[in-house]
Design a protein around this nucleic acid. Structure first.
Lengths: 253, 253
DNA sequence: GGCCGCAAGTTGTATATACAAGCATATACA
DNA sequence: TGTATATGCTTGTATATACAACTTGCGGCC
């Protein structure tokens, strides 16, 4: 009969199956269990973690639904090839995306300053009118070719030191993820013709349709960021794949 | 002791928990259980469907993770306010989408015939060259305004009676979902300027950037459909929302 | 050598049972 | 009247058990 002081210390009381999930995720994250490799069988985990098989099974089933694992009946459980990307969230880690497809990522910071929120922006970000917001405009390049314009407004309450960062070494996205847990993301995609300023920043010629991704992130009850990402239609596509009924989604570019 | 001839006929053998999920989804889809309303408790479902509580619990738990239900401990289980849309899959059920926002949906079938696959198409659909494929071109309208061009190639093996359908009463999407279980969906979004034919079909004036959604669906090992959906940028947007760590994704238009 | 079938190990499903935790209502008591 | 308690319902978790379905490899058999 299990007693459960093993898996992890009980700072936050947590369901057992959740602890098992965390145990597995840690092993995947820190590289002890590599992609495509087999992980211990249910029975081995039962013995190692001292929980029932049903509990291990639930943990493994949920991680599979989330895309972290792949299971084959009669064979075993494997770390999924590509870690699941949270749909649109990860898209914006464009630096990684460019590198992954063999490109060379650079970026240029066109603007980084505090501003007073316009009425419209204040409403969008649920802030008092003319409150101070941080504004950053970056362009990301793949071998000198601009592939994304990122136009971000950031809530100073969420990231007070945002303006002090060096965004040529860490992307704003990476920085923001570190300083604030994001609890919700909204986004809207549309196709537009760029205005003149955008066209200049992306070095476009007309006619040049663009994908525009509007994104609002929330951290608890507060809006953390309100952003607009512009992709030249000719140089970028958003793509994805998923299997119905499984729950995992992947969106790559 | 349950025997299970009740819930649904056993055409496709299917796990019990899946039947329970389908039972619930049907009640939600056809409006017997409305958004925000309570649905029967686990114990009531146990009695009604003659399965064990653990099975009902699993079904409800998974539907909750997928965003269809909301559960409150000690209170009950409720139909989620907004039903989750399986990312890009459901988007294309455009008729429902238009009605939901109070529009009036009509569609016109511009083409519906068998063709010989070009080399490129045959490769995309993993079919022998110059094999026969079904080709359908529809335009969907919201109050006479065209909002989507759907250009579909369908694998005759998957839907042999595709050409006989009346696509003014059922959308191709709805029909295809009924005849073949879809196991995987790939899609790519891009922004383009429409060619002249597309521009005519959608009654566009230039310059008119469009969202183009390319979609390939699979049924088992076979490609079921290869489609191109064109949305006028000025009349349509793709949007979504999700909460990290929860598993539910939603994409609405 | 090649084929068949069996056994062991794996995941997948279904059940019965038990208790914990949260909520709402009814009831008893001061 | 107001407050505490009890009860009954709900969902949430954990376990033991059983069997099904599938894969692999081993060994026997032809």
């Amino acid at each position: 009969m299990p007693t459960h002081t093993d898996i992890v210390s009980d700072l936050h009381p947590q369901p057992l199956y959740q602890k098992v999930k965390n145990y597995i995720l840690e092993h995947i994250r820190d590289g002890r269990w590599l992609a495509c490799n087999r992980i211990p069988s249910e029975n081995e985990l039962v013995q190692k973690l001292d929980v029932s098989r049903m509990t291990v099974n639930r943990a493994l089933r949920e991680l599979t639904a989330q895309g972290y694992l792949t299971r084959i009946q009669g064979v075993g459980t494997f770390v999924a090839e590509e870690k699941p990307q949270c749909a649109f969230l990860e898209i914006i880690s464009i630096a990684e995306e460019i590198r992954r497809r063999g490109g060379v990522h650079t970026s240029y910071v066109h603007l980084l300053q505090a501003e007073k929120a316009t009425q419209e922006l204040a409403a969008l970000m649920h802030m008092p009118e003319s409150a101070s917001v941080f504004h950053a405009i970056l362009v990301h390049y793949d071998r000198q070719v601009p592939v994304q314009l990122a136009d971000r407004y950031v809530n100073p309450q969420i990231a007070p030191r945002f303006l002090e960062q060096d965004f040529t070494s860490i992307t704003p996205n990476e920085y923001l993820i570190n300083v604030a847990p994001i609890t919700q993301v909204d986004h809207v995609i549309e196709a537009t013709l760029p205005d003149r300023k955008t066209k200049n920043l992306l070095a476009l010629e007309d006619p040049a349709p663009c994908l525009v991704l509007h994104r609002t992130t929330w951290s608890g009850e507060h809006v953390a960021t309100n952003s607009r990402f512009v992709y030249p239609g000719s140089r970028y596509r958003l793509g994805g794949r998923f299997k119905p009924d499984s729950i995992s989604h992947r969106l790559v570019t």
